[in-house]
Design a protein around this nucleic acid. Sequence first.
DNA 1: GATGAATGAGTCTTCATTCAT
DNA 2: TATGAATGAAGACTCATTCAT
Lengths: 223, 223, 223, 223
Amino acid sequence: MFARVARMSRPDRLRADARRNHDAILAAARDVVIERGAGAPLDEIARRAGVGIGTLYRRFADRGTLLTAVVRAALEQSRDSAERASAEAGPDGTGLDALARYMHDVLDVRVSAVIPQVLDVDDLDRAAIAEVREQSAAAVERLIGAAHDDGSLPREVSFGDVGTLLVRLSRPLPGPVPAEVDAELAHRHLDLVLAGLRAGAEPLDEKGLSRAELSGLRDDEQS
Amino acid sequence: MFARVARMSRPDRLRADARRNHDAILAAARDVVIERGAGAPLDEIARRAGVGIGTLYRRFADRGTLLTAVVRAALEQSRDSAERASAEAGPDGTGLDALARYMHDVLDVRVSAVIPQVLDVDDLDRAAIAEVREQSAAAVERLIGAAHDDGSLPREVSFGDVGTLLVRLSRPLPGPVPAEVDAELAHRHLDLVLAGLRAGAEPLDEKGLSRAELSGLRDDEQS
Amino acid sequence: MFARVARMSRPDRLRADARRNHDAILAAARDVVIERGAGAPLDEIARRAGVGIGTLYRRFADRGTLLTAVVRAALEQSRDSAERASAEAGPDGTGLDALARYMHDVLDVRVSAVIPQVLDVDDLDRAAIAEVREQSAAAVERLIGAAHDDGSLPREVSFGDVGTLLVRLSRPLPGPVPAEVDAELAHRHLDLVLAGLRAGAEPLDEKGLSRAELSGLRDDEQS
Amino acid sequence: MFARVARMSRPDRLRADARRNHDAILAAARDVVIERGAGAPLDEIARRAGVGIGTLYRRFADRGTLLTAVVRAALEQSRDSAERASAEAGPDGTGLDALARYMHDVLDVRVSAVIPQVLDVDDLDRAAIAEVREQSAAAVERLIGAAHDDGSLPREVSFGDVGTLLVRLSRPLPGPVPAEVDAELAHRHLDLVLAGLRAGAEPLDEKGLSRAELSGLRDDEQS
DNA sequence: GATGAATGAGTCTTCATTCAT
DNA sequence: TATGAATGAAGACTCATTCAT
């Protein structure tokens, strides 16, 4: 009875097949969201995962819960990338390189492709992702801080700029653009921006939004 | 008797009130699409325009027709901006400035904010926008060509890059970001990219997609 | 003011153009009903008549009124045919021939093609057609009586049978059957039935429904 | 796993309740179509079947699919009747009796009452009924051939005549005619025609349409 | 626990009818 | 008077969610 309750909250502790379903649904959801947006029919996600719609609902209470799990997984990957990039830090003056590695990484795993799609959904359980979000943000902030400190990234370019750029770059282009081309272009344009930053020279007049400002911004609107 | 013919095809020649409604619906559609995406309920558009749903349908045969008109209007503005920027061209070496003016302009009028949203819709009447699309593209290509020629824009940065960047920059950020902040950030990040370009320094290894390649790309996928 | 009221009830006394519209609408309505059934959009009728929908409504208060007028016109033609056939009566023993002439006539003018389509409509103004209906029925009854009396039509074959057969024969066949073929087949099958009647030989055990029984029938159900 | 495949295509293999609904909807559809025509609201069919509108749509993808199933069932009954009549064939000279039995049968089961109503619908899936249609037609043709051969049916009376007559006779009469009366009259008028045929005597000058001509006719118009 | 059936609210779209020009 | 614009109620269809098997 106790275990019963815990089932849905702790995806470990699941029977092997249930666990398998959980993961398959999550993966299918990510793919479908990338292809058809966050409003895609849940039936399609279930079909893609090879399970019945009932099973999907047994694992995820409703659409919001499912999408929350999708974002959560994406944020975990982002956090891990950022931490890895930090750990592998090179000598002074290479802070921007580490940051660049993180950013390309994030584009690679298509991770952030889902985040922007999903962030617009109203019934996300924001509390449930707050922690990972914080962890991810902190790791990225550390990367940026290091790059600021060793002079490889202008101080005007802030946390808010990096996050926003990633969102912009990872969104799939509209129209029938093949996935590989889409990915290639994203990396290319990231390189374009990075090249600009490396060339240096007072890119912007003002400082960008800090993490605090950015989240304050969102919270204000939250209501 | 002359006027009798072709009422719906020529939005001029409409009775005053009809014309007013036509425009109001178009404007409302643009706003709603920006806010809620291309899948927004038509009811809401009608309500926002202050007309009944029936009126909306009298003016625009169906969702596809309405969205087509929205894109068309956006493309017209884009074309006009580009032509204006060309006309006001400065002395040699300022080609990039003209291009920059165009790009900021496009962000300003929130024009391209609708394009990416809508381009994914499958029941667009692509034939109906082909001409303006062509005109807009041609004007932009001229701007870019001039910048290439006077050396202010690296040849590696192509038509495809500019268009894609605009799409990326003009999409509203996810989450509850106030419109002004959104706009401000878009301009800021455009400046970031432009600064990079101005700083020069071999931004990219390969050339980006040309207009032909870009459209070939889409057409291939068209099916 | 008096004239105003009378306008709609007395289609004579109309201004010439109004009269023209009235007739055009009626004709268009008949055609459209034959082609697309009694549920056809009024817009289409108006368009076919070459007038605006507003004009249609000025002439006919609503759908029921229009259809009532259509039936009324059809019944008038039926009555006229029947009276003509009576007037042209031949020598004794030819009563069935006169009846046959009437029946073919009715099929010819496509008159009865509309009647069955329209009789199902709920909001017919039955009072408004009662008189013509009565006149038409009386004339047909006279024809049938004569045929009974001169022995050319078995007494078992009644008023109800004749009317019902006409309804059956005049309905357009389903599917994409060209109008001429449809008409040809209707005449052919009428001939088939008539040939049977002429061959004589106790066609049926019981007598068919009389006029009174038939109309009692409908009235009972009226509710 | 085997059952998983093809749920909707094979109405057998359905879960018991689903099967029950499937049948109830089909029956309700037949009744409603007979009463209110092929344009009747699907809501009403669902209500009559005692299910929600969503269930109706789960079983039948859309209006066309539902009506196709209705016609199909009707054609199956027609085919079975015709084959039964053939099998029970009596001695020579009774070919017309067998045909008559078939025709009355078809009127009885109200089968053909739906066919004419529905054949006009344009989104029928004609391919899906082609086979049964062919079987039914072939069986009827055999009946007719036998009657021609044993001399009980004039060769001028063709396949096309029989089919068309059935269509004409089985259509419900317009106006509020109680179902039993309607049926009674249909049988009566069929008897009238049959009596004529039995009485013999050169019923018609020309031969009626053959099956091939009839279907050629429809196909030509198909477009 | 898995499945897919059933449900009904929400959207799109059509069309009869009213009303301003 | 003629016109066609505006309206909203009604019907088709989709899809999130619940529930019986």
